[in-house]
């Protein structure tokens, strides 16, 4: 069984990485055929054409595209992404500077989304049909459809500009490096409140709606009615029967959400000046920093593959029915 599981995981990873490679290669060609020239960064009378040529030469952009692709493949297989044009550092090093923050923000937001949506759905379930339930179900819809930047702008407007409670952007105060550990922690928390709300609102609403629907679905199943007629207490029904039966479909959606979050929360990062993968990627795209674009996409892809795998694994642990499906 264990060997079989490992084999299944290995096979799945292999296929996923093969597809990721095809996907990244597709990106490689997409970038190369697109207009724009990374060596022509700025138009200034002071830059001599000689410099332009020599920079282009050193980026190896004058080579035939197939040769570039050959080198690209070779580097990808050996795990080398080359030097970022803009940061003038190895791509892996640049990414390592930005990735931790994204991982922290993403997983924090993920935990918040899950916990909060679960709590709210539970409240809805307990107060079914009452005001709270109806309010939550309407409000969650509004939250889900509000564009993320509108929400962020309003939050900043209210909490930073009007009430002056929270900082507007960044992850730390400018002289945080002189702080003690606890001050720093507090500083981070203060800075992350608004971004976390902004980033988590839509996801929470979505999870909430799914959970509520699943709860509702399981609730109306005949075995619950049987239990209830047998006089089992409502709490036992909720905790022992409704919730465990509703969780597993959520897991795969949650896996996708986690993958997306870890890839970088683009708009939140731009809005709150956070140093995450989203902004790194977007800047790389605009600056045509080819190696960095490829590196960022690769990392996002890898994170996504693993979070999907994680989701499926946990799903099969929760519900053995899926493990069979997974093994095949």
């Amino acid at each position: 069984m264990k060997r079989k599981l490992l084999y299944a995981i290995g096979k799945r990873l292999l296929i996923s990485f093969a597809i990721l490679f095809v996907f990244i290669s597709f990106l490689f060609f997409l970038i190369r055929i697109s207009p724009g020239d990374p060596s022509q960064k700025l138009i200034s009378p002071k830059l001599s054409p000689a410099l332009h040529e020599s920079v282009k030469e050193s980026f190896a952009l004058n080579d035939p595209i197939l040769e570039q692709f050959y080198n690209f493949t070779k580097n990808m297989l050996t795990g080398q992404f080359g030097y970022s044009y803009d940061y003038k550092m190895p791509v892996t090093k640049v990414i390592l500077e930005f990735l931790p923050f994204t991982l922290i923000l993403g997983s924090l937001s993920f935990v918040i989304q899950l916990a909060l949506s679960f709590w709210l759905a539970y409240l809805s379930l307990k107060n079914r049909g009452k005001f709270l339930d109806r309010f939550l179900s309407k409000f969650s819809l509004v939250m889900y459809v509000t564009p993320i930047f509108v929400l962020g702008v309003f939050l900043v407007f209210i909490f930073s500009v009007k009430l002056d409670l929270l900082p507007t952007s960044g992850i730390s105060s400018v002289d945080s490096y002189r702080y003690s550990f606890w001050q720093n922690l507090g500083d981070y928390i203060l800075h992350l409140i608004l971004p976390l709300i902004t980033l988590s609102a839509a996801g929470t609403a979505l999870f909430y709606r799914y959970l509520r629907d699943y709860f509702e679905d399981v609730r109306s199943k005949s075995f619950i009615l049987n239990l209830r007629s047998m006089g089992v207490s409502e709490n036992v029904i909720i905790w022992k029967h409704i919730i465990p039966n509703s969780i597993s479909p959520l897991v795969s959606i949650a896996g996708i959400e986690l993958g997306t979050l870890l890839g970088g929360a683009l708009i939140t990062e731009v809005l709150f000046s956070l140093p995450g993968m989203g902004r790194l990627t977007i800047n790389a795209i605009f600056a045509r920093d080819y190696p960095l674009i490829i590196g960022c996409s690769f990392i996002a892809g890898v994170l996504m593959i693993f979070s999907n795998l994680l989701a499926d694994l946990s799903r099969s642990i929760i519900n053995p029915r899926y493990s069979k499906e997974f093994l095949n």
């Binding site: 996923s16 597809i19 996907f23 890839g263 999907n308």
Partner: peptide, 21 residues
């Protein structure tokens, strides 16, 4: 597999990349 890969890939980047380029 391709659908799964794309499904969770931060698709906004792909969109931005294509539109920007």
């Amino acid at each position: 597999r391709a659908a799964e890969t794309l499904f969770a890939f931060p698709i906004l980047f792909l969109i931005v990349l294509t539109l920007a380029l």
